[in-house]
């Protein structure tokens, strides 16, 4: 059997990393041929939804390469990219898809060799991880991640993170980045579980213990999430089964 050739997608920004990749070419630095590049003007353009879609389409690894901090052609696009991609990695860590399949780094226009090294290292890493496993289970997880990524909370928080941790929020306060990250992690977890629950309840009527068991999460947390969905009128209690209330998603 021939060697496993992973499919790798690279998002490169026009000004630094794409130029760095070109320099690797001009310098004839050889690297593994698995990467397929999509050029964007700025790493800040890379919507994490693109990345999850790529995984869903069995792309084994995704690299996002931008300018080094301070070099961004658009002043702070790469900071925004960092916030989003790292948050997306956190979400992936909640699934059975390895978060290391998503990689973020910086390459300047003068770093042809660095570009080649990063591609080689990443390709090797993905080879070791093996082919991405897209089955009903992981697909469900990725779709839930996608729901979160498309959701208001994720986009709002990652959108303002740079502003409020580096500059100030509307109250003129600067929030320590650690505090923000900690909070974000909690919210991402909650959003992810909610998205999973919602997906489960699309075609099923389930009780809280059933949900908690399927999602491998604490009973009270599952309960909290269901309540929150119920409050927003997305999920509805359909009745009682064996003494437990059963829920399903509202159809629109």
């Amino acid at each position: 059997m021939s060697e496993f050739q992973p499919k790798i997608l690279g998002f490169l920004c026009n000004w630094c990393s794409y130029a760095g990749a070109d320099l690797a070419g001009v310098s004839r630095i050889q690297y593994r041929p698995n990467i397929r590049v999509i050029r964007v003007m700025c790493s800040g353009r890379v919507d994490p939804v693109f990345i999850i879609n790529a995984f869903l389409r069995k792309i084994d690894g995704v690299m996002v390469l931008g300018c080094h901090f301070g070099d961004c052609h658009y002043l702070n696009g790469n900071y925004n990219a960092e916030k989003r991609i790292l948050a997306a990695r956190k979400l992936l860590s909640l699934t059975e898809i390895e978060k290391d399949r998503l990689y973020l780094d910086w390459v300047s226009a003068a770093e042809g060799e660095r570009f080649a090294n990063l591609v080689n290292t990443f390709t090797e890493r993905i080879k070791n991880l093996g082919e991405i496993k897209i089955n009903d289970g992981t697909k469900e997880m990725l779709l839930a991640v996608k729901d979160v990524l498309e959701g208001e909370r994720f986009r709002h928080l990652t959108g303002v993170e740079y502003q409020v941790t580096e500059k100030e929020n509307v109250y003129g306060e600067k929030i320590p980045v650690e505090d923000f990250e900690k909070k974000l992690e909690q919210i991402l977890y909650e959003e992810y579980i909610k998205a999973r629950i919602l997906r489960l309840l699309q075609n099923n009527e389930l009780t809280i213990p059933q949900i908690a068991q399927k999602l491998n999460t604490a009973l009270d947390f599952a309960f909290k999430c269901v309540c929150s969905l119920q409050e927003n009128n997305i999920v509805e209690m359909k009745g009682i089964r064996n003494g437990y209330p059963i829920y399903s998603a509202n159809k629109y």
């Binding site: 964007v40 003007m41 700025c42 800040g44 353009r45 890379v46 919507d47 994490p48 939804v49 693109f50 052609h73 658009y74 696009g77 925004n80 990219a81 989003r84 498309e150 959701g151 208001e152 909370r153 986009r155 709002h156 990652t158 959108g159």
Partner: peptide, 21 residues
């Protein structure tokens, strides 16, 4: 034309011309 806004809009209401979703 960086497109950072498009990647952050909670309503997916922003698109970037020539680098559309």
């Amino acid at each position: 034309g960086c497109g950072s806004c498009a990647a952050s809009c909670p309503q997916m209401a922003i698109n970037m011309k020539h680098f559309t979703n």
